[in-house]
Design a protein around this nucleic acid. Structure first.
Length: 427
RNA sequence: GGAGAGAUGGCCGAGUCCGGUUGAAGGCGCUCGACUCGAAAUCGAGUAGACCGUGAUGAGCGGUCUCGUGGGUUCGAAUCCCACUCUCUCCGCCA
């Protein structure tokens, strides 16, 4: 959420930023309401001051044994007025807050202005696009042939967009997130294992709610939502807390299953592991001081890239343009891995700096060293390090061989009990 | 799920029965100063946040609100009443 005072004093900047995201939104009504709020507040506070003063006098008179019924009578009326105004103010504040919660973050100056995906900017590439001297299969074809993925039975047991991984497939998946966790722990991230269900306030803290309710699963009759990413529980770890400057930066890495309704994705990526209702992901989350958040973002991207480099998967780094930028993010890089079945790069990680946008929603602040000075909001960042299901798909497709077998990247061998290849039983 | 106890400032902890200089005693921690070659110990001072107004979107000053959350009673609520949330103890159930 943006700072109310900032919006109030810089409405043109905010409107301009919204325009860059392709949102036409006038703030006139908002500003009007805000003015009303301040006016009412001023009036009611004057009355409250009067009430406080007179009530103190009443107390003094009463303890002195004198009558104060005329003052009490007078204050009864004042209190009634205060009550009415308080109710009015509450309504106005609620409206203002609702609006604020629906305003996305302001893109950073370094974010290119653009309408959508097509206008993202490729920053760099790593590795060679895989070439085959045979007709390569898709990962779902490979997975079924090798009996390590089962989409059909998952359809029976759960429904569309679910899968079983089996045998060496299940082991590969486990190897992948263990490898990722170990790698990031070594890079200085502290491992946390989060709850997969969180409450509404946490979802609001990171920005999924109130605007994107249809994107996620909710437990009926309970205040529990299935997390769409570990970003939600891990960022909310420090919600409503005041950290010491000395504790910053805080780096966390978390494995979690992720759950997404994919409501708007009907007909897209219906086959395979690319777009599932449930998938595994290792997530990186940072809490840092504002001055260093952009250099921390670059570092975060490198941490995510390292995963793909060690797995020897070709990828590129893309800087998202304003129109493709996530709601809460100020700047975001996507990592896109080469996917032979589609002959294109597909998103496998998304690394964002949210500046103080989430911190303000979730009320995460820090106390500058020395104990003096005002509290400040931290900057939060997160990025996939990386999406496990898509990584598995990428390995299957990029590492397939003519006989249908798939070789396992070397760094995973020790996680696979020495298995180096998933053999094709039919060859 | 049943029974009971509790939730106060960065932390611990009084106050709640009997509503009125209690934004809140005391302690710890932290900051600054004194002492010291330096440190410890000791002594002194300071030490919540949000919002509104003023001011330069600073310091300062004035004000309002906040003692788990929300509502109620009252001229006035940490203190009384109601609902909810969470924590702890015991019992039951359970991976």
């Amino acid at each position: 959420m943006l700072d109310l005072k900032f919006v109030r004093s810089n409405p043109l900047i905010v409107e301009e930023a919204l325009k860059k995201r392709g949102i036409e939104m006038g703030l006139e009504e908002f500003l009007h309401l805000e003015e009303k709020r301040r006016h009412l507040l001023y009036q009611v506070e004057k009355l409250k001051k009067q009430r406080n003063e007179v009530s103190e006098k009443i107390g003094l008179q009463k303890t002195a044994g004198q009558d104060a019924s005329d003052m009490i009578e007078e204050m009864r009326e004042v209190s009634r007025e205060i009550k009415e105004m308080d109710e009015e103010i509450k309504k106005v504040e609620q409206k203002l807050k609702d609006t604020l919660l629906h305003i996305p973050n302001i893109p950073h100056q370094t974010v290119p202005v653009g309408k959508g995906e097509e206008e993202n900017i490729e920053v760099r590439r790593w590795g060679e696009i895989t070439n085959f001297d045979f007709n390569p299969l898709s990962h779902w074809e490979l997975g079924e042939m090798l009996d390590i993925l089962d989409f059909e039975r998952a359809g029976k047991v759960s429904g569309a967009r679910f899968s079983f991984s089996k045998g060496l497939g299940a082991r590969l998946e486990r190897a992948l997130y263990n490898f990722m966790l170990d790698l990031h722990i070594e890079a200085g991230y502290r491992e946390v294992f989060p709850p997969f269900l969180v409450n509404k306030q946490s979802m609001t803290g990171t920005g999924q709610l109130p605007k994107f309710a249809e994107d996620m699963f909710k437990i009926e009759g309970e205040d529990y939502y299935l997390i769409p990413t570990a970003e939600v529980p891990v960022t909310n770890l420090y919600r409503d807390e005041i950290l010491d400057e000395g504790e910053l930066p805080i780096y966390h890495v978390a494995y979690s299953a992720c759950f997404r309704a994919e409501a708007g994705a009907a007909g897209r990526d219906t086959r395979g592991l690319i777009r599932q209702h449930q998938f595994n992901k290792v997530e990186l989350v940072k809490f840092v001081k504002p001055a260093v958040s952009y250099q921390e973002l670059e570092g975060l991207v490198l941490n995510a890239e390292k995963v793909l480099q060690l797995l020897k998967l070709p990828y590129r780094v893309v800087l998202l343009c304003s129109g493709d930028l996530g709601f809460s993010a100020a700047k975001c890089y996507d990592l896109e891995v080469w996917m032979p079945s589609s002959g294109s790069f597909r998103e496998i990680s998304s690394c964002s700096n949210f500046e103080d946008y989430q911190a303000r929603r979730a009320n995460i602040r820090y106390r500058p060293a020395g104990g003096k000075g005002k509290l400040r909001y931290v900057h939060t960042l997160n990025g996939s390090g990386v999406a496990v299901g898509r990584t598995m798909a990428a390995i299957l497709e990029n590492n397939q061989q003519k006989d249908g077998s798939v070789y396992i990247p070397e760094v995973l061998h020790r996680y696979m009990g020495g298995v180096e290849t998933i053999e094709n039983p039919f060859s």
